[in-house]
């Protein structure tokens, strides 16, 4: 890499204690602009905990989270979201009885105290309306626009969740196991989608168990095990790293 680029996201020295348990131990990672970064590791390694610290759900015991160089550590979640970090969840969390269209509309950014929010969106904020329509097209959700999101097939629900996340106009998108439970074709769809999102300027940080998926997609990987960062590097470096193989295949001794 030429020179030092300002990272989009920086997590520096994050430790998270739950009682006496050290769930995360001095974790540092960064995501550069337009980079796709993966966090991998066995169950319970602390991957989702890392996401929860970044999005403000947990306050880290020590350490700092910075977005574009600005500290956002343990800010209220909605302010972190507005600063430019959106996420999806491992167990899909859509809004109960909302249609796909309503999911896209509700996540559009808006200022806090304006009359706009009190009037029908269609007239009050045609810009938000148009942006939501673009995202609907972009994620190929136009056909199911007026369906209740939770009644849709699993694979489409994932797309709705991603659509909602990008409706908030993030700079950084966190994806928690985006292809969990998907068949090969669905997973490949999501892979192409993630690449397109990156090309449109987003930085992406994702968690997944599917090694093949992660290796094919990510520019850079971090490997967590029992709350400790045991390795990091490009996919080809990780693939041949004995420490990683050991963590994944079980300890020999």
């Amino acid at each position: 890499m030429t020179g030092k680029q300002q990272p989009r996201l920086e997590a520096a020295g994050i430790t998270k204690m739950f009682g006496g348990i050290r769930a995360l131990n001095d974790i540092s990672l960064e995501v550069l602009p337009k980079q796709i970064v993966g966090i991998i590791g066995p169950n319970g390694a602390g991957k989702t905990t890392t996401f929860n610290v970044i999005t403000g759900a947990y306050r880290p015991s020590t350490g700092e989270v910075r977005l574009d160089g600005k500290a956002v550590t343990a800010e209220p979640s909605h302010l972190i979201a507005r600063a430019g970090i959106s996420r999806t969840f491992q167990n899909i969390r859509l809004f109960g009885d909302m249609t796909v269209w309503e999911h896209l509309l509700v996540a559009q950014p808006h200022s806090d105290f304006t009359l706009r929010r009190l009037l029908p969106t269609r007239w009050a904020d045609p810009q938000a309306f148009r942006r939501a329509e673009e995202i609907l097209e972009f994620l190929k959700l136009a056909d199911v626009k007026d369906r209740i999101a939770r009644s849709l097939p699993y694979g489409i629900q994932r797309r709705v969740e991603i659509a909602r996340a990008i409706s908030a106009r993030p700079k950084l998108l966190l994806l928690d196991e985006p292809v969990a439970g998907m068949n090969h074709d669905e997973a490949d769809d999501i892979r192409r989608l993630i690449l397109t999102l990156r090309d449109s300027g987003l930085s992406i940080l994702l968690i997944d168990h599917d090694m093949a998926f992660v290796m094919n997609l990510c520019d850079y990987l971090y490997v967590l095990d029992f709350g400790v960062m045991i390795a990091q590097g490009r996919p080809d470096q990780i693939r041949s790293n004995p420490v990683v193989l050991d963590a994944y295949l079980g300890h020999a001794t």
Partner: peptide, 29 residues
């Protein structure tokens, strides 16, 4: 009835359905 078609009402419903997810798309719950 007018408010029910507004952004704010969608936000109310989002908060009811999933407060955590609502906050994470930037809603001040």
């Amino acid at each position: 009835a007018i408010l029910e078609h507004s952004q704010i009402w969608l936000e109310l419903r989002a908060v009811r359905d999933d407060e955590t997810a609502a906050a994470l798309v930037g809603l001040d719950t």
